[in-house]
Nucleic acid binder design. Sequence first.
DNA 1: GTCTATATCCAGATAGAC
DNA 2: GTCTATCTGGATATAGAC
Lengths: 198, 198
Amino acid sequence: MSPRTGEQNAQIKDERREQILTAALKVFALRGFAATRVGDVAAEAGLSHGLVYHYFASKEEMFYELVSRAVYYSGQSLVMVDGMPIEPIEKVRQTAKYIMGGIEAGQETSYYFLVVIHAGVMESSPERDKFFQGSTVAVDTMEKILREGQRMGQVREGNPAEMSVMFFSAIMGLAVYNITMPGFRMPDPELLVSMVSK
Amino acid sequence: MSPRTGEQNAQIKDERREQILTAALKVFALRGFAATRVGDVAAEAGLSHGLVYHYFASKEEMFYELVSRAVYYSGQSLVMVDGMPIEPIEKVRQTAKYIMGGIEAGQETSYYFLVVIHAGVMESSPERDKFFQGSTVAVDTMEKILREGQRMGQVREGNPAEMSVMFFSAIMGLAVYNITMPGFRMPDPELLVSMVSK
DNA sequence: GTCTATATCCAGATAGAC
DNA sequence: GTCTATCTGGATATAGAC
């Protein structure tokens, strides 16, 4: 084989893998891990059942690849917001607006949150627990933002770690609500901001 | 058979049924519907696998009996709180303290919330959707409390329906957090109160 | 790389003994 | 009323053809 063909193959392989993961994200988010059949993912991706196993060793591996990405992306978004040249309370506002908008739109943002929720409420296992140990970047970054906001007199008194947890709890709950109730209307993000602002 | 024996049998039947439901509540809450095996419930209840089917037609029926109770109980708690001779903002405070305390203790309160969450994130079905149509009592009652609080100048301006949804979203998220993270420490309920108070 | 066919296992549900 | 044994369907994962 020439290098050219090898490269092309590698590219196809990557594309297929992403194609499967995109389908899997949606299906896992909407049904959870146990209720999802590998055949459902294959159908959503428009591929054969067997091919999925050419790219992933197991249904579990596929799922945790998504959980892993979800945790990583959520951490990165917060780090990015934190890097913006705006005031702390404005960072909180941007985060609330961005995430809630994404959930309401029912796209990837929403799916990633739901996958994390499904993973969280799954029966505990070594595999599962591993992913929630490195999952504190988003919460920790928000805590840091809130602490800074307190120093600048923009954020109310109280434990910033607890506030951060409450912030993300509310967002997770909204993701659940949004998928539970058809026709759910997202509340004003400003409510979340007011929870922590002075 | 004498009437006496009939009554005794009926009582045993009721007790067994409750015994099974108590076990099922815990197992469903911790694993979700699809991942729960009927054998798991039987084992938790200390009964044989087959006996469960003497009391319930299917795994689904068992699950939705629990969802139904969860929805009913949560509605009733709110109605009860609303009936107390205290100020609106104090009703909000009592609700937050009571529910968050129950979740932290990891007992029935927590399990009922988790069952509702599992039901909510399950794939949509006619069976499932039925239960979420009559499930608005708690949210509606909280909305009413908040509206009254606004009239009395205790609750901040804004859409009380949205505030109520946000309130319960945060609580659902906390239930998820609590089961996701081992050693999770519940935030101060006062944070939730401050979200809606003036 | 992709598909179809199949092996294998496991869980929901039932039957029948006690 | 309770249990053990069993039927049966369906889902994960694999094998092998193209």
